[in-house]
Structures are given as C-alpha cells and as structure tokens.
Amino acid sequence: MRIVRTEAITEAVARLCIEANLHLPPDVTRRVDAMRERETWGIARDALERIAENREISARTGLPMCQDTGMACVFIDIGRDAHIDGDIYAAVNRGVSRGYADGLLRKSIVSDPLRRVNSGDNTPAAVYLDFTDGDSVTVTVAPKGFGSENMSRVEMLKPADGEDGVLDFVTRTIELAGANPCPPIIVGVGIGGNFDKVALLAKRALLRSLDEPNRDTYYAELEARLLTRINALGIGPQGFGGYTTALGVSIEAAATHIAGLPCAVNICCHVSRHATAVI
C-alpha cells in the first residue's frame, strides 16, 4: 500500500488546469493542420489558419487559447494499492481554485443553476473517480467549454433503431448544432449503458487520442463512417461552409438492457483540452 498525499493531487490539478488551457494535445494540433491542408473552400481554410495562428499566439503570450476556460472535468484513476490520505474531492477543488487563480483563467461556474451566483474560483469541479491496477494515481484535467457542451444530446433509442438509428441521431445532432459549438469539432459518442452512463461514455470518448480508433474494429469502422457523414454536411469551420466540420469521432460502447439503445453525443470544440499526470 502506497500513501498518496492529497497535496500532491492538489498540486497536479492546479498545474494541469493551466497546462490544458495553454497547450493542445499533439494529436489535436496535428489533425487541425492535416485538415487545413485538405480543405479546399477558401473561407474555411482562412478560419483554420486563424485557429492555427491562435494556438501559436497562446503558446507565445501565455494567454489561454479560448476565453471559455471551462468547467474543470477531473478524471482520477486510483490504483488499487494506493491510499489517499484525505478528502479527494476537497483536494481537487483546492487545485482547481489555485490553478484558475494562478493561470489567470476565467471563473465560469455559478454555485446554483437557477440563482446563478459565480462561485468566484471555478469550483466545484466535475470529478470522476475510477479504479485501476497498481499503486499510482492518474489525474486528467479536461476543461470543458459550454458552447459545445450546450449542443450535446442524449436519446433513448429503441433496439430496432439499430446502427442506422445511431448514425442518424449523431449526424442530426451535429447538423442541429451548426455553428454554435465552434466547428471543427470532435464528436464523442456513447452507445449503450443506461441514461446516465451513456453520457459519461460520450465524455470519456473525447479523452481518447484522435490517432487511436476504437480497439473493436466494428466500432472503429462506425467511427470512420460517421466522420465521413458529418464532413459531408458542409457546415465547415465556424459554420461558414466547407469540408472540415469534424476533426474526429470517438465511440465508446457498453452493455445495455434488452429493451434499450441509449445514445449520447458529447461535442467538443476544436480547442479539445486535456492534460494528464501520474502521481
């Protein structure tokens, strides 16, 4: 049994909040650049060039890439042989508070959804705990902007809707979203589970590298087909028209009930931020 101090988690979360808001994962930058090369529509190419330029300015100046520095989504995988010596939720929130203050990130959280008073330090975070092998603790911070979050949808499809029902629902969701989620987007799709689990599957799908298709070749092929369908919509970067509506599609699937086919689409903008540390 290894003791992991809560201060180590706080420190990691604070650092990762800042890192994620200033530097995109390399798979995302590579994909934006590849799509920019492929894009033939003038106004679409201009928008993709601005997006690439923004990334460089952010790295040079230390300004966040996007002013919506997000709700802090913190995924923690705890090794079965690790013991955390205190309140993990409090440790995460202290880290978010510190990171958002030190990094001059925007405080975008209201403490109550209807009475809407800003909490002032971007807490509380959305914390997702899971268990894994070993004695280390893996922390991933994924700041999630709400321009794209607001366009996400869950549908309880019928088993008879099948594969086509899923393809139609996902494509229709992207069409309805139009320019709002700041395309080019990354599309996280959850299939199966139940009403709440399917949404988390979709969110977790957004953490997977764009260079890694689903390990199940059936779902890898569905990802490819969906990406083709979405990029045939013509919405384009920023909704101005063009090929590049989506940079990638990631599907996560899980067992479900004989009566159900839950499907969730969690949309992320091109500023697809996540950073990971192992303690």
């Binding site: 997006i51 923004n54 300015i57 890439m65 002013q67 919506d68 320019a179 920023q238 500023v271």
Partner: peptide, 13 residues
Amino acid sequence: FGAIGGAGALLAE
C-alpha cells in the same frame, strides 16, 4: 458579425 470561436488569444491581440 461572426468572430472565430475559440481564437481567444488571437482576438485579444
């Protein structure tokens, strides 16, 4: 008008 969504650092300049 539309400004580029997600280009916050560029627009700050």
